[in-house]
Simulated assay, not measured.
Amino acid sequence: MSDGSPSSLAGEETSGGSELVVVTGLSGGGRSTVARALENVGFYVVDNLPQALLLDLAELASRAGGAVRRTAMVLDVRSRVFSTDLAGAIRALAERGYPAQVVFVDAEDDVLIRRFESVRRSHPLQGEGRLADGIAAERKLLQEARESADVIIDTTHLNPNQLRARVEELFGEEDTRRLRVTVLSFGFKYGLPPDADFVLDARFLPNPHWVPSLRERTGRDADVSTYVLGRRGARTFVETCTRLVNATAPGFEREGKRYMTVAVGCTGGKHRSVAIAEEMARRLRQLRLAAHAHHRDLGRE
């Protein structure tokens, strides 16, 4: 069994260049959180896949090449795979050239019971019995799958964010784990961007629109940028806002956010906001954040 470290799991791909992961484990253990975390790091995730389609999906992913390079299949007791032999199904995939990494989520019984009671759901194997009976039956059914897993994640003492972070640590490529920051310029007269996490107002700066030689140019042009950033307070504004984004980025990442939008507005979204957005994105990249500038309203005037 693998030790579950990133080095032991990363880079294990099929002959077709696709990475295949099978996620299973106890109901209430956190399979859905694992699935969402895998999606965060670039996996195409299929939930509750019937056993008969395991090989078909692996073949489709392999033929898709780069389009579906990383595939995860989430299996639980609703799947007919457990009426036969999960370990055997995984071996069959490997024999056909599609080796899969198996992730098993587990938790202590009392924790699983509390989780089911908190959402007022019955266990899928509970029947007319107690929650504990359903959990015991599932443990027995999944015993061999647990023993053959490449990595076992005990979620007893993990909250959803901690579990997500653990999965991303194991399977995330460096660029997929990083927060991506879009510094978005816009014009207030066209409305606020609805997806903005921060909204900054650059209208306190003199407007290049009233400078005849700059009116037809944009904030991407060097002379306009020099003019905007040379106004009193402009560089302090950029520096302060850049520090704000840099200070909050680690918290956003811990909470599972993968995209941050910092909206910078001026009247029409042509001069001041564009120049500020470009400069902020440049400074954020210097701070090793994955940042780029995008200009929503440039060209509308």
Rank of each mutant, 00 (worst) to 15 (best):
residue 294 H to W: 01
residue 72 A to I: 07
residue 198 F to R: 15
residue 219 G to F: 01
residue 283 R to F: 01
residue 147 E to F: 00
residue 296 R to G: 09
residue 163 L to G: 08
residue 70 R to L: 09
residue 214 L to D: 10
residue 191 G to A: 09
residue 217 R to Q: 14
residue 250 P to F: 00
residue 85 D to W: 02
residue 76 D to R: 12
residue 40 N to Q: 10
residue 293 A to H: 08
residue 164 R to V: 07
residue 218 T to G: 03
residue 59 E to M: 11
residue 198 F to N: 10
residue 119 V to Y: 03
residue 275 A to C: 09
residue 168 E to S: 12
residue 67 A to C: 00
residue 158 L to Y: 03
residue 287 L to F: 03
residue 157 H to V: 06
residue 67 A to Y: 00
residue 121 R to F: 00
residue 134 G to S: 03
residue 93 L to N: 06
residue 85 D to I: 08
residue 282 R to A: 15
residue 73 M to H: 07
residue 19 E to T: 12
residue 152 I to H: 03
residue 237 F to C: 14
residue 123 H to W: 05
residue 290 A to R: 15
residue 156 T to I: 07
residue 140 K to F: 01
residue 230 G to N: 03
residue 24 T to R: 10
residue 188 F to C: 09
residue 71 T to L: 15
residue 205 L to N: 12
residue 167 V to A: 09
residue 293 A to W: 04
residue 254 R to W: 00
residue 10 A to H: 13
residue 206 P to G: 05
residue 295 H to E: 03
residue 5 S to A: 11
residue 65 G to T: 06
residue 115 R to E: 04
residue 183 V to H: 08
residue 12 E to I: 13
residue 225 S to C: 07
residue 79 S to D: 09
residue 3 D to K: 04
residue 42 G to H: 01
residue 243 R to L: 13
residue 230 G to V: 02
residue 143 Q to P: 00
residue 250 P to V: 00
residue 268 G to C: 09
residue 65 G to N: 06
residue 217 R to L: 15
residue 213 S to T: 11
residue 89 A to E: 07
residue 25 G to K: 13
residue 37 A to N: 07
residue 209 H to A: 04
residue 136 A to N: 09
